[in-house]
Design a protein around this nucleic acid. Structure first.
Length: 554
RNA sequence: GCCCCCGUAGCUCAGUAGGAUAGAGCAACGGAUUCCUAAUCCGUGUGCCGGGCGUUCGAAUCGCCCCGGGGGCACCA
């Protein structure tokens, strides 16, 4: 709907230019928004005010001229008004609202799937936790946001690829192997001083006993440096399988798990660094190699090869991003914890040095989750092994409630996650509020079925019977859904969908309490049934994008 | 010290790429169920949008300065 009005405005502006009413120039971005207040019409545009300074005329006068040149070929506009400082308010014909119901009927499970992506290839990389332990609550938020963002993009005609980057080449992995080895020795009765920087969780002991069960004591006599790689590989493998399993239980699947070690194959990282050196982005200060990230606005240059000859994590990350782009992605989206924000300028520099557009890399930051139980904070620390795993949360509160809760805030703001509240099936828990609306509609449809009413079709339904403000409001919400989805995709803000769902469910519940859908009036019943069926489709489509189920009964 | 994010109702937060009179949920209080599910609905309040200055026709939103909270400032990942 928005797009139609934008098109009408664009045509009007061209006509005005052609008729010489004002001098031609580049058209500003034409903005049309839905109004908050219905006395301002249904949609409004500020275009006249945007043009005012360039044309050096009064906004209201410009608005007037524009309105005189509007050609409403589709016949959607009832009237326009010029209001306030120069808004053009559009009042649409009432029949328009019912028209959206036809779209819902026709498109069904694809209703709302606006085409903003044009089939562009987008990669979303998320979670990407080291396989040094199970995923915990902090990973869960990034996992859901990444997954839903990918769904949102897929629903807006992007060719989406989900990827998990396994940081399995660094120091931390060595630490993991060492931790398991020490527990292994301990379990064999040796006296071991367990270092503080090793992983303390119980899962480490479990891994050690697995190795004992498999290999017995053969590793006791071997030198530490020889045996650690074995322990590391074993532990990482098992943990990674566990991670995949936990993600699966949360409804998250990846197209690819990409191992950092791939990057080092055939000397890949070193070759890349040499290429960048040829392009003069890298210099040496004697025994260290530096990347000139300051060329691209970073606050200081960054080390890519350390004094000991080892490449840094950043070096591998440049290689990884080149690998991504070489696979043909138009846009690469990285989902990172907010504590990595300082990393953005250098990563951006890396991407630009490789010759890719700055805009082709987007980073979404995920703020910390405060885990609470009945309002009291739950203490957590990975190293000490005191943490609540993602699996525990999903098992305790359920997949739907967990996912929905992680989507109720902007991802860059802190989130309080209260286990007790999330578990409670009450009005404190919005996921049930929305699902209940869906279940209620299903219940209405069951009643209609019992009364032998057939499902109404668009052609034979008399939508002029839908005259209540609530009914018009609901239809407007249905029309708005594609626009909300589009906004979520453009701004990479999946939380917009939960807010939309809460609004829609609220309007429906209110309507339900005041009005009977199935009544003695067949024509009215048909029209209302059609409306609630459309609402159900929108609820279902939006919930599906969130990865939350749409129950038919509750 | 430098950089980033945040500061909106008692609490938790929205506020649609600067728009018209700043919203919702929770909590509190009072009501609604012979009728499609009461996990619902209806009603009752509250705001120096942290503060100041500026840009603009117009600022919660943009810029600068302060105050307060969090995070980051590795040849760690």
């Amino acid at each position: 709907m928005k797009e139609k009005l934008v098109a009408v405005l664009r045509n009007a502006l061209r006509t005005c230019e052609q008729e010489g009413l004002w001098e031609a120039g580049t058209l500003p971005f034409i903005e049309v928004d839905w109004t908050k207040d219905s006395t301002h019409g249904d949609y409004a545009s500020n275009i006249a005010m945007m043009l005012a300074s360039r044309l050096k005329r009064k906004p209201r006068q410009i608005a007037e001229t524009i309105c005189q040149h509007l050609h409403d070929d589709e016949g959607i506009i009832e009237k326009t008004e010029i209001a306030g400082p120069g808004f053009i308010n559009f009042f649409l014909k009432e029949a328009i609202w019912a028209g959206c119901l036809a779209d819902v009927e026709r498109q069904g499970a694809r209703y709302g799937f606006a085409d903003v992506g044009g089939g562009k290839k987008v990669q979303v990389e998320f979670v990407s936790a080291n396989p040094t332990g199970p995923l915990h609550i902090g990973h869960a938020r990034g996992a859901v946001v990444g997954d839903v963002l990918a769904n949102v993009l897929a629903a807006t005609n992007h060719d989406v690829f989900r990827e998990y980057y396994i940081n399995d080449a660094g120091n931390q992995m060595n630490n993991l192997g060492r931790s398991v080895l020490y527990r292994y020795r301990e379990l064999q009765g040796q006296e071991v001083a367990f270092p503080e920087n090793c992983y303390q969780g119980d899962y480490i002991k479990a891994l050690a006993s697995d190795i004992i069960a498999r290999d017995g004591d053969v590793h006791l006599k071997k030198a530490e440096d020889d045996v650690i790689p074995l322990f590391t590989a074993y532990a990482a493998g098992v943990i990674m399988e566990g991670i995949k399993d936990d993600l699966g239980a949360f409804g998250i699947k990846f197209d690819l798990y990409f191992s950092e070690r791939e990057l080092y194959r055939d000397d890949g990282v070193a070759k890349l660094l040499r290429e960048l050196e040829d392009k003069k982005f890298i210099y040496s200060d004697g025994d260290t190699l530096w990347f000139k990230t300051t060329d691209f606005g970073d606050e200081k240059d960054r080390v890519v090869v350390r004094q000991n000859g080892e490449p840094t994590y950043f070096a591998a990350d440049i290689a990884y991003h080149r690998n991504k782009f070489s696979r043909g992605f138009d846009t690469v989206i990285d989902i990172w914890g907010a504590d990595h924000h300082g990393y953005i300028p250098r990563m951006s520099a890396g991407v630009q040095a490789l010759g890719y557009n700055k805009e082709s890399l987007k980073v979404v930051l995920i703020q910390l989750v405060n885990l609470l139980r009945d309002g009291k904070p739950v203490a957590m620390s990975t190293r000490s092994g005191e943490f609540v795993t993602m699996r525990e949360v999903v098992d305790e509160v359920g997949r739907d409630a967990a996912r929905y809760n992680f989507l109720m805030r902007r991802s860059d703001s802190h989130l309080d996650f209260d286990l007790e509240v999330a578990k409670r099936q009450s009005n404190e828990n919005p996921v049930y509020y929305v699902q209940y609306a869906h279940a209620r509609i299903c219940s209405i449809l069951r009643t209609a079925g019992e009364r032998q009413l057939k499902t109404p079709d668009y052609a034979t339904t008399d939508f002029s019977r839908l005259v209540l403000p609530e009914e018009i409001g609901l239809m407007k919400m249905i029309i708005r859904f594609p626009e909300v989805l589009e906004g979520a995709a453009k701004m990479l803000e999946p939380h917009r969908l939960t807010f939309f769902l809460n609004d829609l469910a609220g309007m429906f519940h209110s309507y339900y309490n005041k009005n009977k859908v199935v009544s003695d009036d067949p024509a009215l019943t048909a029209a209302r049934l059609f409306l609630v069926i459309a609402i159900r489709v929108v609820l279902h489509n939006a919930l599906t994008i969130l990865g939350v189920s749409s129950p038919e009964k509750m």
